[in-house]
């Protein structure tokens, strides 16, 4: 595989991330984009590289957001420990949901994850510590490692970007490891992977947990940015949104989910005040177009034009 162009891609991504806030793009908006980009990348690991469509990824985003918010605000954790706690809890939840969901394949898998996530939504609604409808508010950003003041937007921005990069490269590493090759073999031809002696269920579970934990990382970071965790994170709309980001950006591409997240968040940001309830209609139309005629997504199409996988 000719990987040279990839490095250009990485360089462009890092350059953009470092310079964007200096160039005057609103930092809170950028932080939101990076959080969702990480979320979409984690999702892509599952759908794009293993062929498992989870329709309940909001569950992992929300569990981490709530746990991080709760530990930081009420238990006095530092931001780094709060994020870690959130990520771990998402991993554990991923193990539970994953063990159930991988018992069925294909469409059933999607419906099961959706139903489990919906169940969790009701649980959050009734639990005391989540604040129900009101959400969990006023999470302090605190001092990273007790040293760096995160209430400063610039400091926080670079932390968020660093977290994104760490997640992003971890996913990249996983995909190109022997483990990742097996995942792709499962996506292409599961019976053959089984016949080659791979314990497919085990692989599926591991990648599911990994994807859940990384989604959790995104959720916990998001809590720190917005200083709140709310039911929005747990709603099935959120699960749908991450599918859309990945699909629009390009399924099974390295950069696709990042591009998709920026486009969708940017669109929502731009359109929300201008078209009101039409936002949902427009999202639906993008979905339909992507599925019908644009299945490669933005980055996928670009890769086809450049004749290189991106």
């Amino acid at each position: 595989m000719n990987g040279g162009h990839m490095y250009w891609g990485f360089a462009a991504l890092i350059g953009f991330g470092l310079l964007a806030p200096v160039a005057g793009i609103y930092p809170t908006f950028l932080m939101k984009c990076w959080c969702f980009a990480l979320f979409a990348c984690a999702f892509n690991l599952l759908l794009g590289y293993t062929g498992l469509l989870s329709f309940g990824h909001a569950a992992f985003l929300s569990v981490a957001a709530y746990v991080a918010g709760h530990t930081i605000r009420n238990l006095g954790f530092g931001p780094e420990w709060g994020i870690l706690a959130g990520t771990l809890s998402a991993g554990v939840l991923g193990y539970v949901f994953g063990s159930l969901a991988i018992r069925r394949a294909g469409i059933y898998f999607a419906m099961i994850t959706l139903a489990l996530a919906q169940m969790l939504y009701f649980v959050w609604l009734q639990m005391k510590f989540t604040g129900g409808e009101d959400g969990l508010q006023g999470v302090p950003r605190g001092m990273l490692f007790g040293l760096i003041d995160l209430s400063d937007n610039t400091n926080l921005y670079y932390l968020v970007f660093a977290i994104f990069l760490a997640g992003f490269f971890l996913i990249h590493r996983v995909i190109h490891s022997p483990f990742g090759q097996v995942l792709q073999a499962i996506r292409e031809n599961e019976p053959r992977a089984i016949s080659l002696g791979y314990d497919v269920d085990r692989y599926k579970l591991v990648v599911f947990v990994l994807s859940a934990a990384l989604s959790g990382l995104a959720g916990a970071t998001k809590t720190l940015v917005f200083q709140l965790a709310s039911l929005t994170d747990a709603h099935w709309h959120m699960s749908g949104e991450v599918v859309l980001m990945t699909l629009l950006g390009g399924l099974g591409t390295v950069f696709g989910p990042v591009v998709g997240a920026f486009v969708i968040i940017g669109l929502q940001n731009q359109l929300a005040d201008k078209v009101g309830s039409w936002v949902q209609v427009i999202m639906g139309i993008i979905f339909v177009i992507c599925v019908l005629v644009f299945r490669r997504g933005i980055v996928g199409e670009l890769g086809r034009l450049l004749k290189r996988p991106l």
């Binding site: 908006f29 709140l228 929005t232």
Partner: peptide, 11 residues
């Protein structure tokens, strides 16, 4: 329009 979402509103 905050769409009744806390994060959209605070943003």
């Amino acid at each position: 329009d905050h769409q009744n979402k806390g994060d959209v509103a605070s943003n």
